[in-house]
Design a protein around this nucleic acid. Structure first.
Length: 801
RNA sequence: GCCGAUGUGGCGAAAUUGGUAGACGCACCAGACUCAAAAUCUGGCGUGGUUCACCCCACGUGCCGGUUCGACUCCGGCCAUCGGCACCA
């Protein structure tokens, strides 16, 4: 029979839609499963082959869960605000809303053609005012709790996109999106205090089932360091300089201090060489943060003349420097320099002839090279710490500092607050109004959504203002507080805003009273399984966890964490092994694949191509291999015979396969699950017939991967109801083992024979058979047998001398 | 520099976590079918040696060493590739 995949796939997609096959019900009596994949950004290029990889994986789990009796929520939506759409709109003079609609329609159609079991009734779109009403609402809650604030800060500014960027969006000094040059620019920006949640974002990872890689990357990004703050008196004044150090034990080795050029205290100090300092500050300000970190080989700096500090533990007077190797944005913007045990301080000390004092024992001369290998060691030149082990010395020093009010234990994070303003059109308007009298005033919640006004031109302005600034009719408003004339905020939100909570809206997408119904949230949260790309680990994943924790704190959501489990798929590379990109000309269009081989083949190939979490190159030859397999599957209809129990000669193979496929799907080892099904079909074809019971199990196991062809076969074979409504097959552990076993026999670790024994044979049984074997006798005759080892059902080993 | 991952046939890979290395698929080779080709089916397919052939033997999972009856798997030391972070005190 001909495998007419186009016809079959269309037929079943229509039936599923008509029957609302994958609708999630609010049936609280059933256990729930909430499966999620990152909703796509509907770009003009259409669906990428990477999308189906993630989607199919969770689709497989979702389909399996339904058959296991779960109430499954597997939704889809659109993360549609963002720069590419806006840039496309500017270039082609089409309104971004229209571009978005076109792209969404295309994406939806493409996704439907692949047969994902999404509940399409729950579609969300971040650019829909009914949706972003709640994005704005969340912002207002953040504002009320003091977690959103406006600050004049140097931001990363992309000279090409003309937009401010979060630290996370700057890659090697360039804009993450366009690769344009990023410079520092001081602007008044809305900021979100993600740093207030740093500790919890770090610690609560312990309660999740995220894959280890994701946890580690998040922890590194949050960058927790335990240490101490230490106060240094500025000699002859009452002023103090506070530094942060992770190595309080090395305080006796601090021979000078360094301040960042931006340090506030510099304004008030009585510096003799003020001009020199000013010149250095100006120089540093010109450089971008990237340039400052790039030029890290050569240390520069200026010593403050006429100002010194006192080392609090030994009373020594030490000089103070400014240098751009000290960052204003981390710790206190000031450090104590311990050149003997820090590479950077050492390089600086060498260049400017500062004294180097070794305080921890170790090999090598600290005058030649800093001794930084000081996790262990004994204190020296350190007064009351002398002779202590490093670990104890840190503790003792911190205790000493606290007792004498010279400092205290302190934990610092690398994570910085989230720059939330964008000077762009295509984003959620920030629902704030600036009044001369009242300052920043939030819009009343009832007035939301604050809709994005229609604009003729949405090109960024040259002065770095948002295009909304040109819409004076919209900008000019009245103060919600006092009624006086006021101006709206013209910056918009970053596109991370809409994606930071979308999974909440899926639970109750049409609710116009609240973000989502409490009972429903209680039932559906948390998300049981979330799959997505590693590239979102430090951006989307962290931001959405932050918002979720905030919503938890104000009683909106019932769980501390949004995602119970997070997994990550490997990238699909072009057939040349390089990243797929238009410029490399190695892009595969999923539509082509569906036209030529069908959606089931596409789905199956993407699951079969390699380990799920690893990158793998595209191979059209292998796509054909999967197609051939599905043809073979379809041809099982030609050899179908009656039978309502597994036949004796296939029983073991089937039980084995049920076990393997069930386990492998759960572990996302889709490639080996499929290989298992291939093995089974090879065995069936060797036999030349399959009975109905066997077919039923076979197509049920394959269904999550290839839902269309299997549903069609289900109908053709005359099984009752629909395959998507059936239950997942069970296996009998006892029947997964063959009745006779092939036991390899090794002598001194080398395979010498394979013997057959019955299932459940004892070591004595195996020994008996083994020593009847000619090969074995050949190698054991006349030798002393030292040892015999039997690993049940695995291997039999003889050691001879 | 730091953190993480990876390294196995011509290629994508697998190995129940210490127990027959290379399952499954691709490519390739041979045969069948065909006037022929495609498709399909059957068989072969790590390297080397030996043999008419079946058999058999040795070697083989990035490199060096170790533990073990037995190592892709564990331990120690390197090398390479790819990600992420990077003057974070």
């Amino acid at each position: 029979m001909d495998y007419k995949f186009t016809e079959i796939e269309k037929k079943w997609q229509d039936i599923w839609e008509k029957e609302q096959a994958f609708k999630a019900t609010n049936d609280f009596t059933k256990p729930k499963f909430y499966g999620l994949i990152e909703f796509p950004y509907p770009s003009g290029n259409g669906l990428h082959v990477g999308h189906p990889k993630s989607n199919t994986a969770i689709d497989i789990i979702s389909r399996k869960r339904r058959m296991e009796g779960y109430n499954v929520l597997y939704p889809m939506g659109w993360d549609a605000f963002g720069l590419p759409t806006e840039n496309f709109a500017i270039k082609n003079k089409i309104h971004p809303a229209i571009v978005t609609k076109q792209n969404v329609d295309r994406f939806r159609e493409q996704l439907k053609k692949i047969g994902f079991s999404f509940d399409w009734d729950r579609e969300v779109d971040t650019t829909d005012p009914k949706y972003y009403r709640w994005t704005q609402w969340i912002f207002l809650q953040l504002y009320k709790k003091g977690l959103a604030y406006k600050a004049e800060i140097p931001i990363n500014f992309c000279t090409s996109c003309k937009v401010g960027l979060a630290n996370e969006e700057v890659v090697n000094g360039a804009c993450e999106r366009c690769g344009g040059e990023v410079v520092q620019k001081v602007k008044s920006q809305w900021m979100l205090k993600i740093t207030e949640y740093a500790e919890r974002l770090y610690d609560d990872l312990d309660d999740t089932d995220f894959i280890e890689k994701v946890k580690i990357q998040q922890r590194n990004w949050i960058g927790k360091s335990k240490g101490a703050e230490v106060k240094f008196k500025i000699t002859g004044t009452d002023e103090e300089l506070v530094v942060f150090t992770t190595r309080a034990d090395t305080l006796f080795g601090a021979t000078y201090m360094v301040l960042s050029p931006e340090h506030k205290v510099l304004e008030t100090l009585n510096i003799e060489n003020r001009d020199e300092v000013k010149a250095y500050q100006a120089e540093a300000a010109k450089k971008s943060e990237f340039e400052r970190t790039e030029m890290n080989k050569d240390k520069t700096g200026v010593m403050l003349n006429g100002v010194t500090a006192t080392n609090p533990v030994n009373g020594k007077e030490i000089p103070i420097w400014i240098s751009d190797y000290v960052l204003a944005s981390y710790g206190t913007g000031a450090i104590m320099a311990v050149p003997a045990h820090d590479d950077r301080d050492w390089a600086f000390a060498k260049k400017f002839n500062m004294p180097i004092i070794q305080v921890i024992t170790g090999e090598g001369d600290v005058n030649e090279k800093a001794n930084v290998d000081v996790e262990t060691g004994t204190m020296m030149n350190s007064g009351f710490l002398d002779g202590l082990e490093v670990k104890d010395a840190i503790e003792k020093m911190i205790a000493y500092l606290e007792e004498n009010n010279l400092g205290k234990a302190k934990t610092n994070f690398k994570l910085r607050d989230w720059v939330f303003s964008r000077q762009r059109y295509w984003g959620e308007p920030i629902p704030m109004v600036h009044c001369e009298k009242c300052g920043w005033v939030p819009l009343p919640e009832e007035s939301l959504p604050l809709e994005l006004p229609y604009a003729e031109s949405y090109e960024p302005t040259d002065n770095g203002e948002s295009p909304l600034a040109n819409l004076t009719d919209w900008v000019n408003t009245t103060c919600p507080h006092c009624g006086a004339p006021a101006k709206r905020e013209t910056d918009t939100m970053p596109n991370w805003a809409g994606s930071s909570w979308y999974f909440i809206r899926y639970i109750d997408p049409h609710n116009d009273k609240e973000i989502a119904d409490k009972e429903l949230l209680k039932y559906w949260m948390p998300i049981d399984w979330y799959n997505g790309g590693m590239e979102h680990t430090t951006l989307h994943l962290l931001y959405s966890r932050f918002w979720h924790k905030f919503l938890y704190d104000i009683g909106v959501v019932p769980t501390k964490e949004p995602y119970q489990k997070r997994t990550s798929h490997g990238m699909i590379l072009g057939s040349n092994g390089e990243k797929m990109s238009k410029s490399r000309g190695n892009v595969i269009n999923p539509d082509d694949m569906i036209d030529r081989y069908g959606a089931d083949t596409l789905r199956m190939y993407e699951m079969f191509m390699g380990a799920f979490d690893q990158a793998a190159p595209w191979s059209e030859q292998s796509v054909k291999g999967c197609f051939r397999f599905l043809e073979k599957v379809y041809n099982l209809m030609d050899i179908l015979v009656d039978g309502d129990a597994y036949s004796a000669d296939l029983e073991t193979a089937i039980h084995k396969t049920i076990k393997k496929v069930s386990n492998d799907y759960e572990k996302m080892k889709f490639n080996t699950a499929i290989a298992g099904l291939m093995e089974l079909i090879n065995e069936i074809n060797k036999k030349g017939e399959i009975n109905k019971a066997e077919l039923k199990t076979f197509i049920t196991l394959l269904n999550p991967v290839a839902p269309h062809i299997t549903e069609e076969m289900w109908e053709q074979a005359g099984f009752e109801g629909r395959l998507y409504q059936t239950t997942w097959p069970e296996f009998d552990e006892a029947k997964t083992v063959d009745s006779t076993l092939e036991i390899p026999v090794q002598i001194n670790g080398k395979l010498r024979a394979v013997v057959n024994v019955a299932k459940g044979a004892s070591a004595e049984d195996v020994e008996k058979v083994a020593f009847e074997n000619e090969e074995i006798l050949k190698f054991t005759e006349g030798k002393e047998i030292v040892k015999k080892i039997y690993v049940p059902e695995r291997i039999y080993t003889i050691v001879v001398k």
